[in-house]
Write a protein that binds this DNA or RNA. Sequence first.
DNA 1: ATCAGTTTGAGTCAACTTGACTATAACTAA
DNA 2: TTAGTTATAGTCAAGTTGACTCAAACTGAT
Lengths: 258, 258
Amino acid sequence: MTITNRGRHQTGRPIAAKRVITVYTTSANVAERQSAPPSLAISTVIFALRPSESSGRPTLWIPLVRRIREPFKGLWALPGGPLTHTESLQDAASRNLRETTGLAPSYLEQLYAFGGLHRSPTQRVVSIVYWALVQPTEAALADESENVRWFRADKLGSLAFDHNGIVDYALWRLRNKLAYGPIAYHFLGEYFTLAQVREVYEAVLDTQLDPANFRRQIKSTPEIEETGEYLQGGKHRPPRLYRFTGRPGLDPDNRSTP
Amino acid sequence: MTITNRGRHQTGRPIAAKRVITVYTTSANVAERQSAPPSLAISTVIFALRPSESSGRPTLWIPLVRRIREPFKGLWALPGGPLTHTESLQDAASRNLRETTGLAPSYLEQLYAFGGLHRSPTQRVVSIVYWALVQPTEAALADESENVRWFRADKLGSLAFDHNGIVDYALWRLRNKLAYGPIAYHFLGEYFTLAQVREVYEAVLDTQLDPANFRRQIKSTPEIEETGEYLQGGKHRPPRLYRFTGRPGLDPDNRSTP
DNA sequence: ATCAGTTTGAGTCAACTTGACTATAACTAA
DNA sequence: TTAGTTATAGTCAAGTTGACTCAAACTGAT
């Protein structure tokens, strides 16, 4: 939509009016590629917390899939795929996530539409990228195979296409949202202690936070609710369990959902 | 890009592999439409400050274009058009802006990719929407015609497609950015007084702000610089002129530009 | 039973920020 | 010269933040 004009150059639809006949094929030549509309793909940057091998403390991990064909055959890339006609962008991201990693996200938000001319050497592709958070219980069950593997977010190596830049941007966004919005809870289960929330912040922002000040700040946010429950089993005073009562929504797809 | 799979269901490219032959035409039937890839359009929400007719104080205005064909023929819509193959998303937005309104934006940022299934009654369209700020000197020169007209942002009436929702979201984003980031200056020229900055805030946020407190806060931001110049000509003490020294960049397209 | 070790959770205090408000400065117009 | 207007500095109380102290409540070892 959004096809508008002043009655001079443009004609209603993007390509329609010329009655272009386009043959898509994997070996399309340059002329054919130039007349084809840019392909549209959906990708997702998925974040989960998993214990680091060294320290055991939670750290940020991202699942990637290995490319099994050119371009960038053999390199790791973000999970993604085409957009089908019967699903919205967010549904496509969701489906994609499920198909490649077996995961159901607890938070899913559009990140950005990447459409630079030379993102792929073979084709003009516009990628609409989402970012997702999954809970550790989910992440532990996630499919892992020869072609799907989890990586520490700070040790990714060189990825296919412009995916390193996309991950950097997703990380920036995640840190930003964490600092300003109630997002940390989507990394956790329904009940959690304030220390667990702090561990999320410490892992994502890569800093140490003062426990006393942190709990004061978190407790002052309205989206969190005390329960009467306590987490037993530690070698110390049992911490109280809390529950998240807020709703995610900020972007247009989520804003109206009640 | 981002076409990845586990070697089972998917095949490299979205549609390519089946060697589909697709005929695009304005009267394409349902079967043809379903096999065509979703069309990609670029639209822009353009904001400028113009004096209100009633009070004379600056208020937010948006240029719209009239649709000259179905669907929604006769209704007002956001300026937009197709994405060509030789331009990036941002360039397409920029060109579009220039072609429909004659404007050059002083700020341009991606807003969101809208891709709901039923946004257009005739076609599946994914719109990548940008939002732009233009300076009032520019806005005053802007083309206006039978099919291009400026509207007050708070009095738009019913627009084509889902454009009312898009404008609402753009407004929300503008207000957010204004509150947290150095964005107000893009509504103004190179030199400005602190009172002018305050007028921008008051117009966009639709509130009254205390002049003394406002100047204290603004002066504490590093992106602003005192000049030795003063604005003469008022019926009062001449205010000092300031200059904006920061850079816009936050999203991936702008982050690296030095 | 008691004690050492741990984390939870409340509280204190100084530095800083914010909103409401006062006062003076510097111009124009009458 | 004076009234009107906005610019700009400053004060003060309330609220927030970061560094820090300390008691509470558990476990495990002695």
